[in-house]
Computed example of a mutant assay.
Amino acid sequence: MAGTRPIVMSNDAEPSENISGGPDGGGLETAFEEREADTRTEAVVDRLGERYWQKTYGGQDAFECLVRTILSQNTSDKASQPAHDVLMDRYCEEDGDLAATLADADQPTLAETIESAGLYNQKSATMIAIAERIVDEYGGAEEFNGFVAEGDPETVRDALLDFSGVGPKTADCVLLFSGGRAGVFPVDTHVHRIYRRLGIAPPEADHEEVRAVVEDQVPAEKCGFGHTASIQFGREYCTARKPACLDDPDACPMADLCDQVGVYPETGEVVDPADAPAE
């Protein structure tokens, strides 16, 4: 595992559309001792870190982080960020307990508040139910935040997954952005696509299988920025329908590290890696 140099605040703001971090998402820039990557996956993450940012994460309020991630489910950050901002303006009182406030919230009113995020009836009901459990089982948002930051990571993950409406990606985002846990590499649709397309994870791997492969091959301290940088790479280069390499093999900064599984520049066809014929 690489040693770290002193951590300093980053001057490079993450893109505002990346709800996983964002300008208000916290995080400290960190540099790693230069060394040859032990795996192709680590080489990919190193290159992404050089292109975008190298940061350690943690410090977000756990319940707010949970709310943000639920809002971002099945929608774009462009849609979910305004919903988050309006929700916080309406329900987050100074020195108040957001979980306690949402536990007592009127569901139709909350749904109207977060309408721009889509699936607002489902998401509002999920947030109220989780808020009620956090108040009942932990005592409130502050106590829940302490549990996420200090509890055994597997115990915390299991507890998060026990909340209705919380899947592995949401649980891992809370562990990373709130708990600051090293070795956590949340897998969203971008990460799932990229690491199978690269040929690092099996083409038919599900989200949890991709997570297991990547976390096994990337040093723990690089997983956080590997996740956020992979998302940005997926938006800019390795898109679902028209990856950069489709028209120009040299247009992608990962060209020499990628197997292009499911991408066929000679025909212009792009399929999910799981649908690519075996070679």
Rank of each mutant, 00 (worst) to 15 (best):
E150C: 00
D136T: 09
V148N: 02
G165R: 05
R133D: 14
D152S: 05
D136M: 01
D158T: 13
F147L: 07
G146V: 09
S124W: 13
A117K: 03
Y120E: 14
S164G: 12
A125Q: 15
I128C: 11
G118A: 01
T155L: 13
G139L: 05
F144T: 10
M127D: 05
V148W: 00
T126M: 10
E142H: 13
I134V: 15
V166A: 10
S116V: 10
V156C: 04
M127Q: 04
R157Y: 06
T155V: 10
A149S: 12
A159Q: 10
G118C: 08
I130S: 09
G139N: 00
E143K: 09
R133T: 12
G151A: 10
E137H: 00
D136K: 10
E132F: 00
A125K: 14
G151F: 03
V148S: 04
L160S: 03
L119V: 02
K123Y: 06
G140T: 01
R133S: 10
V166P: 06
V156K: 08
S116E: 09
I128K: 14
L161A: 10
Y138V: 00
V135D: 12
M127S: 11
Y138D: 12
D162T: 11
K123E: 11
I128G: 07
A149M: 13
F144P: 06
T155I: 00
A129Q: 14
V156G: 02
E115N: 02
A129E: 15
L119A: 00
I130C: 09
E137F: 07
V135Q: 08
L160C: 01
S124T: 06
K123D: 03
I128Y: 08
T155G: 15
T155A: 15
E150N: 13
T126R: 15
G139A: 08
S164T: 13
E142S: 14
E150P: 06
G146M: 02
T155S: 15
S164E: 15
G165E: 12
N121T: 07
I128H: 08
D158M: 05
S124I: 00
E137R: 04
E132A: 06
